[in-house]
Every structure is written in C-alpha cells, then in structure tokens.
Nucleic acid binder design. Sequence first.
DNA 1: TCTCATGCCGATACACTGTATTTAATTATT
DNA 2: AATAATTAAATACAGTGTATCGGCATGAGA
Lengths: 230, 230
Amino acid sequence: MTVWDRPEPPTRPVPLDRERIVAAAIALADEGGLEAVSLRKVAARLDAGPMRLYGYIATKEELFDLMVDEVHAEILPEEQFGDWREVLRIRAHRTRQATLRHEWLADLLGGRPTLGPNALAVTEAALAALDGLADLDTVLRAVETVSAYSTGAIRREIANLRAERATGLSKRDWQRASGPHLRKMLATGRFPALAKAVHDGTEVDAEASFATGLDWVLDAVAAKLARPPA
Amino acid sequence: MTVWDRPEPPTRPVPLDRERIVAAAIALADEGGLEAVSLRKVAARLDAGPMRLYGYIATKEELFDLMVDEVHAEILPEEQFGDWREVLRIRAHRTRQATLRHEWLADLLGGRPTLGPNALAVTEAALAALDGLADLDTVLRAVETVSAYSTGAIRREIANLRAERATGLSKRDWQRASGPHLRKMLATGRFPALAKAVHDGTEVDAEASFATGLDWVLDAVAAKLARPPA
DNA sequence: TCTCATGCCGATACACTGTATTTAATTATT
DNA sequence: AATAATTAAATACAGTGTATCGGCATGAGA
C-alpha cells in the first residue's frame, strides 16, 4: 500500500441545510422532471444517506413546498415599478418565465397554498400595488382572478408543450396529427366547430397567446376597480 | 369433506373492459384521493390480478386520462341553452361542481391535454356557442381564457379546502391560524398589505368568489367579441 | 484523561409502487 | 384428440417514502 491507494480518510459528513437540499432537489427536477426527484437521489447528490434529510424536512411534500417557494424568489422582481396593471402583468409573465425554466413548477402551481416567505412576498407586492384602489374584497378578487388565469394558462401551455414534445412533431401539425386518435375523432363529424378550429386556426406563439388573455383579464379588473361594487 | 366445505368452483374470470376499470379507479379516487389509486387496488376491486389491466390500459397515466374524460361526461350538459355567455358560465360551474364531487380532478385539471371523446364534446359545445361571433382566433382565445381561469380558480379552491380540512379549523380562522408559521410571518411586519387582507378580509363563500371572478372574465370576453381586433 | 451519556448518522427493514417476464391454464383449431 | 394460440396468473425487479434500530463519535462530568 502506497500513499496513492491509501484509503480516503473517513469523509466528515457534509453539513446540510434546507437550502442545499432544496437546491439539489431543484437541480434534479430541472434535469428530469418532478418524478426524477426522490429522497434517495437528492440525498445521494449531497453525499448523504436518505434518512439524513429527515432531520431537515418532515416529508417529501414539504420538500416540494420548499422548492416552489424557492422559485418564487425568481418571480419577485428586485424593484417594483409601474402602476398596478404593470405590476400584475409583470408578475404573471415572470411566473410564466420561471415555469419555462422549471417546467416541473407547472405540476405544482396551484396545487397547494403557498405560504413560504418568497411566495408571500410576491403576493404582498401585488396587494400593495392595488392597495387603496378599491375596497379590500375587490382587491383580493382582482389578485386572485389574475393569478387563477395565470396558473391555468401556464399549466395548459406546459401540458401542450410536453405533448408536442412527446410526439416530436412541429407545433403546426401537432393537433392535426396527435395520434390517429384525434384525427379519427374529428373525422366522425361530431365536432365540426373543433374541426374547423384545428383546421383553420392560425399558429400563434404561446407567449402572445398568454399575453393576450392576460390583457383581457386585466381589462376586466380595470373596469371593476374603476367602478367598485355598490 | 362435506358439501359445505367443498371448495368453490374456480371462479370464471370476470370479463373486463375499460369502462369497468375506469369506474373502479374513480371509486377508489373518490374515496381516498388520487394517491389511493394503484393498479393493484383497482385490479383487486375487480377480482383480477394486477397484470390483467395491461390488456386494456397501457400505463397508469392513460388510466388517469380515462378518468378525467369520464368525469367530463358529467360536465357536458344534456342540452345546451342560452347564449354564448350562459354556455361558458355553465360549463365553468359544472366543471367546478364535478371537481367538488371528485376532488382528485383538481390534481389532474390542466395537467395534460384532454383529447377524450367527452372532453372534446365539451370543448366542441363551447366553440359552437361562440361560432361566428368573431374571427376564429378571438373565439379560441375566449374559450381558452375562460377555461384557464376556471382550472386555476378551481385548483386553488380545492387546495385551500384541503388545507383547512387538514388543520381542522373553521374557514374563518384558517388563514389567521394556519400553523404558527403564517402568524409569525405576518408578525414580521414584512407583509403589511397581506396582513391587512388576512385581518380585514370578509368571509366570502367559495362559490360566490368563483362566480364573481368568472363574471369578470366573461365581461372581458364580451368586450372583445363586440369589438373584434383590427 | 477516562467514563459515560447523548445525539446524530448510516444501515437495515417494511410495505408498497408500476411494470416486464415467465409460467400455467384455458380456449380455439386442426 | 392433439396441438397451437390466447389469455390469466404468478413471479420478479427495481424503485419508492419512511420507521426503526445499532453503533459511533463527540461532548460533558469526574
């Protein structure tokens, strides 16, 4: 035995904390989706045994919550500017962008109440931007309506993106050709309006579509803020 | 051995089909949530071995898709009446009601493109109701915007419902007391607008809140239909 | 410095999952 | 009636989240 093959000294256990655990989990999820996140793999990435994690995390769901909150740090802009409409619009777009960077977020969005510090800060910023523009109930409804639209639209966008990715087809032809299934369905003649939509619909990019729907919703909110309920 | 303990004649294998499988899966999910649905349990409920199912279903995800489509049969009303706005409103409310009956649907809503016959029929009905009221792109955007709001709002409602159910608290006190966690967060003073909202927000029932946001979105759609884009 | 106690880390264990594969049984066909 | 084809069942595998247990290393007390 030489110095070269002398066994490594027993590695001191790397100190862990939630931050490192969450970062490892996010890295795994970014690479392989949510289903690639297992406590064993997260622990392995930190050179630890699986049970180590339970000193910092009570359950896997809690880890997911922490992941979601961590991404909310990317969503909250450093500084707020613009009127309430700009604030809400930017919040929606940043949420969408964060989800495009971390597709697994789509699976979690809206799935559980978000009570982490970053998520609360995001909500706080939205509420603050609307503060005083109408009675509290209206303000709450406004924020919730916009964010309901956002999460719904983002989820659908990611769902479609995954579907077309799975078939490996160009966006244009995706619907028309998503398996013989949809084609056959449309061929039955039971869905004429849908068939027309699939056939004649122009290709619009996802961001524009998201932005347009968002603007509609913001228009609606603007109308309610101007004319608060009796 | 008497006639009494004579072994049962070997039970003929019960003939299966997708319908029965999906029904069993839905029953399990209704009772214990999505996570209670395992192929083994579904098969057991049909007196079959787990592998039997693979003759009718390629994967568990496909089973989920079939479950979602099955519930869409409850969403599609027997007969359509009213103008486009009524059609879209009813569709949203029926989706919400179906989700309240089958809470697991909230976990799946918007998660994957819905291409089953019932889901297509639901979409078809919506498109048909808007047909001709504007150019096709506007009509599509309208339907998608409303359904994005619906899925987002429904998911949040179910998420909150589960959270308050978990804490076993009355709706009124839920936010104020969801663990020491939220209280501590609000006590930091970093979230004044949020604190005010939690403190002063009146208790509104979920259905009214859903309906109000939906009406806002429908107002927005109405405005765009009246004035199609240049 | 030696002993004892405490807390933490890793290993083991359990009950379960989705699904591939291999074997057995049953049906159909010649 | 014998063989071929189809179908069900049993077994197997690799993985999961998490409870429990055993040992080791570190700290305190003497």
